[in-house]
Design a protein around this nucleic acid. Structure first.
Lengths: 206, 206
DNA sequence: ATATTAAGCGGGGTGAAGTCCGCTTATGCT
DNA sequence: AGCATAAGCGGACTTCACCCCGCTTAATAT
């Protein structure tokens, strides 16, 4: 009979050697980022230093940006958990406007913390692919906006613009050319304050 | 005596052959964009098709993004002139809030029109270099904000966020993967409307 | 244990961006 | 007109992202 216990649903589980290699690659990538900076991580170099073939790297991550995406994944999940089920005002339990403000502050800090890798995880082609962090931010903002009922009709466009206002400054218009320099610790705070003001004006109800 | 008429100030004028070659390269680049799309323009291909060496292309434009920057330059100047000395409300003569709104609408339309080339003119490294259009947008917004006196202290941060809100959606979060498809003509309008609402809330004085 | 099979793997190959450096030639001076 | 000079030019070279395809091997069924 062909009735294996799990195989339908997920095509098959990840092979043991594949899992081992992924860990190996991720660890090596982290080491290379720490040692050489984001720019110093090349596909060939990563493969060689991990003692694996180039093809393996591509099988696992698909693209160079994919490496950094994977590197970010863990922290991204932690952040997401805080938003989805952490304590208020970031998590559920506070009013939508307070949550919007808290989200903006937390997100700004997160982006500033992971600046180099976030930027490296962006792919030139395909503007912000479907599953990306920016999409999550946008959906969350969109959701909180519809709860806040700011008396604005086109909440989709507004959410898009607020997403850009939140992530754009850190991801695009900021960041020093230098490899691993946090630009300015106070700047993230100022952006957080400014975000709060912006939200309070857009959603005046309170 | 060493007293040539102009040479101090500008080191020397552009050589005639250099000017001719630049025109040639620009024309060829335009043709290639029309024919092959933005992706089809390669440095080698451009050089060969223009009948010039690759070194020449790099001398003129520095980088691949530089080509598109140059391609944009003319239209960018025209846009700038409208803002600086055109009729109100885009040009001077209207109140700052009206000018902010008009600027946002005009800029959105401009970006949507030139989407493919604008995106191609962005360079991965060096996040939005100093002389770039985004900087101009930011300075203009900053200037109008200080005239509008919205009762907000950190106008620099606010200008940064509004710049991102304005340019981010078109440049980043929009645009189809397809070479030369205008995503949705109505979308630019909706973003313009949304921008107006945003500005009206941020600068309530009128 | 052995056979089967598809996921995993390796590394050579390709195309394109950007660098280098010696040759050519327009320009301005005498 | 002839000369000096530095801007301009060309194309070989390097580096890197990403592709391809035949071999290997872990997982599973018998």
């Amino acid at each position: 009979m062909n009735s294996p216990l799990v195989p339908l649903g997920r095509p098959r589980a990840e092979r043991a050697d594949a899992a081992r290699n992924r860990e190996q690659l991720l660890a090596t990538a982290r080491a290379m980022v720490a040692e050489l900076g984001v720019e110093g991580v090349t596909m060939d170099g990563l493969a060689e230093r991990a003692g694996l073939g180039k093809g393996t790297v591509y099988r696992r991550f698909g693209t160079r940006a994919g490496i950094f995406h994977a590197l970010l994944d863990e922290d991204e999940h932690a952040f997401q958990d805080q938003v989805m089920s952490g304590p208020p005002p970031l998590g559920p339990g506070a009013g939508p406007v307070d949550r919007l403000i808290a989200y903006g502050r937390a997100r700004t800090a997160y982006l500033a913390d992971h600046l180099a890798i976030v930027r490296a995880s962006l792919d030139r082609k395909q503007p912000v692919p479907a599953g990306s962090p920016a999409t999550l931010t946008r959906m969350h903002i969109r959701m909180l906006l519809s709860l806040a009922r700011p008396g604005i009709t086109d909440l989709d466009s507004l959410a898009l613009q607020l997403t850009a206002a939140l992530e754009g400054p850190v991801m695009l218009y900021l960041s020093a050319p230098q490899p691993t320099t946090a630009p300015d610790p106070a700047l993230a705070d100022r952006l957080g304050d400014s975000w709060q003001t912006l939200i309070e004006r857009v959603c005046p109800s309170g």
